[in-house]
Design a binder for these strands. Structure first.
Lengths: 196, 196, 196, 196
DNA sequence: AATGAATGAGATTTCATTCAT
DNA sequence: CATGAATGAAATCTCATTCAT
């Protein structure tokens, strides 16, 4: 086999997600990741520049896939309301399906050093863009209120989803995450106050 | 804590908040905190069991003060709406006033190891209780909708505030945080959808 | 003891000289030097910035002492011929007395990376200056020939002494080094050719 | 060596000389040498036992050629003085012509481990023999003085040439090396002292 | 013969924590 | 109570060498 095996690349990424999910980024030793991936330590450095690059690649790949699925589904939804609904559902379902991904995304990413966090937040920007474009579309169509800035709204949406997933992770996932979609959607659209 | 110089205890906590706020928990060396506090490294271990205990104490103290202020103000507010408004304002104002506090609370806490994070989330529980009791009161008084669980609502409120402060910190605090209170309050109460 | 012990500093330097003398710079592990000095590995980093700094300090100290002795003795010698004689003698005697020093100076220093070697050759410059000033003085007094450049002469003197010590070290020091002073002096002064 | 492609063998040696000349023995990675030689890393181990063997072979080949040329020229020169002159000239000219050779010979060889250096100095022995036989011949013919041992004389000759080349290399070769031959010859024959 | 992906021992350096003074 | 020098475990990354293809 002349080319570096794509299997090994995947194996290392999977192993990293697992170990980081279990013990956190800082405690995730390269040696453990290597063992988990059935690979020698040095091999990891054939595929990734260093530990940080491994984390970055992990996030990039997993988040990248999610974002592109999300884009597709959102584009296919008709109304801004449908799009928002879809986004909430996908965020929660994806987190529920891949626990390691959620763990890394929600919690461990924040362990990174200042500069890594900077790079990571650039990746998040794609997600933010999708959320904001839904909001803008809603505003244009006269469905969403225009008196509140799009950024504030986006932070509510992302912050709520993020916190919801974090809680679920810390609770050891004793309840169904995706079943919350409807309520959260309702809350986003109409707020806490009971309509008369 | 009762014996020993209370000044030193305070000095160390202040130094820790400063250093951690600057470089993050993992990069905050005990030696730097000691130098900042004008204390020998060993002295820190007379007041705190270890580095983790120092962070925990820091959080406990700062968050404790905040929580007790919050309780007081919330108790004094008349309606659930007023209480919610007060909570939002205080959360944002407090974060804006004490940058180190916000930094530690929002971002650095997540760097902690699994068990530390567990302990910290227990401290957060007090905050959650306040939020939830406001919601319950609102529900009882027929102001807030009852068809959505209190926990889901609480996660929206906390998650949104958390994300809002995080964004502000990462943006290098180039805008006024507390000025967002009204919009966030509006959003919480009435949601995204434009009333006709 | 409040101040870092000067004893430890010395002990580490001695240990480094010994270990480097035995196995060479690259194979001289910090851990071995630490064991030899009866010190923990970390302690070495309290006294020296890194391994390279340790070597540099070692050379600086030992060579510095030698140079200052040499300067003193050379200043006290009357004629350029006496000065040259003294220099030869001291070079050989010093190497003979402190085998580790010689080993490090003659052989191991050259192992250094490009930049370290640069720094080291700056230190050697002091030695070169002494040699060249003796030559210049001899030329001025009409004792040494003026038709050959001082640098060429200096290189002969240093190169010969250096090679002589290197040979002696590689021969496992089976003969007396300092006893060669006279012959070398003769050779420097009058050359290979038999006077008629 | 007889079998296998002699081209590859040469290519590897050339590449090794180039890389070692550039970055030194310790920093010369096998992977870089392989790339420079347009060969796979593993291939190097078909031709050489290990890295050390590669260096040894390199030296052997280059020095061997030089030595055999030297022998030829020295045999053709008439007097011991002519022979000495020739040797000086060839040493300097060869170093000047092949910078990599000089670099490896003068400086990088010293980076080798103890046992490698031992082997290398055995190779040098051939060179030493030539020098010493010139000296002996001179002594027999009554041209060179007999009161100084041949070894001491040889060390002066080799040491001076060695140091001269080293200086030139470290000076980034800003002057002509071979033009120094005459002065050095003069110095060897008649010494520093001005004849009256 | 040739390849180059894979290996894994090994070395430096950091830093929370201890303990003799 | 206070100090800060000393400790040493731990973790990343490198690179000569091997070996399956």
């Amino acid at each position: 086999m002349a080319k570096k095996s794509i299997d090994k690349y995947e194996a290392i990424l999977d192993a990293a997600a697992k170990i980081i999910g279990e013990v956190g980024y800082h405690k995730a030793q390269i040696s453990k990741i290597a063992r988990e991936a059935n690979v020698a330590e040095g091999t990891i450095y054939l595929y990734f520049k260093n530990k940080q690059d491994l984390l970055l690649s992990l996030f990039q790949k997993r988040y990248g896939e999610f974002i592109s699925n999300l884009k597709f589904e959102v584009a296919n939804a008709k109304t801004p309301m449908d799009k928002l609904k879809k986004l909430i559902t996908m965020h929660l379902e994806n987190s529920e399906r891949d626990r390691n991904f959620a763990q890394v995304t929600q919690i461990e990413l924040r362990q990174a050093d200042r500069d890594l966090r900077q790079k990571l937040s650039e990746l998040l920007k794609d997600y933010f863009d999708i959320i904001e474009s839904i909001i803008e579309e809603g505003k244009e169509q006269g469905i969403f209120r225009k008196d509140i800035s799009t950024k504030v709204m986006r932070r509510m949406i992302f912050g709520t989803l993020d916190e919801t997933v974090s809680s679920w992770l810390l609770s050891s996932r004793r309840y169904s995450l995706s079943r919350l979609s409807n309520d959260i959607f309702e809350l986003f659209c109409y707020g806490l106050v009971k309509p008369e």
